[in-house]
Amino acid sequence: MTTAVETKTMTFVGAVNEALDEALAADPRVFLLGEDLADPAGGVSGATAGLSTKHGRDRVLDTPISEAAIAGAAIGAALEGRIPVAEIMIMDFITIAMDQIVNLAAKARFMSANRTPCPITVRTASFGGLGTGATHSQSLEAWFMHVPGIKVAIPSTPADAKGLLTAAIFDPDPCLVVETVALYGSRGEVPIGRYAVELGTADVKRQGSDVTVVAYGRAVVDALAAAEHLGTTEGIDVEVLDLRTLVPLDTDALRASVGKTGRAVVAHYAVEFAGPGAELAARIAADHFGSLKAPVRRVGARFRPIPAARGLEQAVYPSAERIAAAVRETMTFTR
């Protein structure tokens, strides 16, 4: 984390709100657009509460239910040098904006040889774990990692939510920031005033010497719970490395941590099969081929549409228990 300043306790969603508020105040070119953003709604989860009242409805724009137009209009404004922050309410709906983000935003700088870059920020949220079923629960970040040209940030704490979003808004390239609704109410210390986390810097959320759990977003919370449990009851010393951004990827931090522990578990809420963890595991395996004490384990969502019924849904997602089990496997592995 960048050098500490004064902090205050905030919720995750409050930190998002503060980042947006401060960005709007800092630069007149910043504006927000998306569904139900303006007051009195203030966003479906309150992320934009109060902002239209404070900064005006011409800077906090309520849009129709038109995801392609939300992304497209953000792109157009960005081409003219404005600083749009588009919201796609739930990550599953980004499918509708995919063409604009993937075929235009991600390629704009390169295709135009830097003549018409397009530094949009898209905020979205994964809704998993709320029993809303297969079309309102997905974690699709691997798709965006796979498209060259867009940065992907996924905070796990209120401080990172503020810092990553602030960095994304003022980043010269297109950024996707994925929030996690299940974490919106979580609390933490958040630096007061302008605060940016450099994109591409991972954060060791817990020091340990036996195994590295590489995670991001909600899985960091589970990994910390698993680490706590394993540390106190089984004497396993787990390091939790929060990647914070998938693109750019902090390969130095990854190498340093696994170089120290010699064991790695990769955890995320995205589907395990062909998920972000596949790239991470392959890199770890290649970088530490000679020194790894166990094969890299992955913990992700099962390869299924996400069921609505609570018991089934829980069986699909990762959990602290599943992460702990994977850690144990790496500890007990023998050649």
Binding site: G131, T132, G133, A134, T135, H136, P305, P307, A308, A309, L312
Partner: peptide
Amino acid sequence: SRGKGGTMH
């Protein structure tokens, strides 16, 4: 759908 789809599906 035996609980797999949910209210929306």
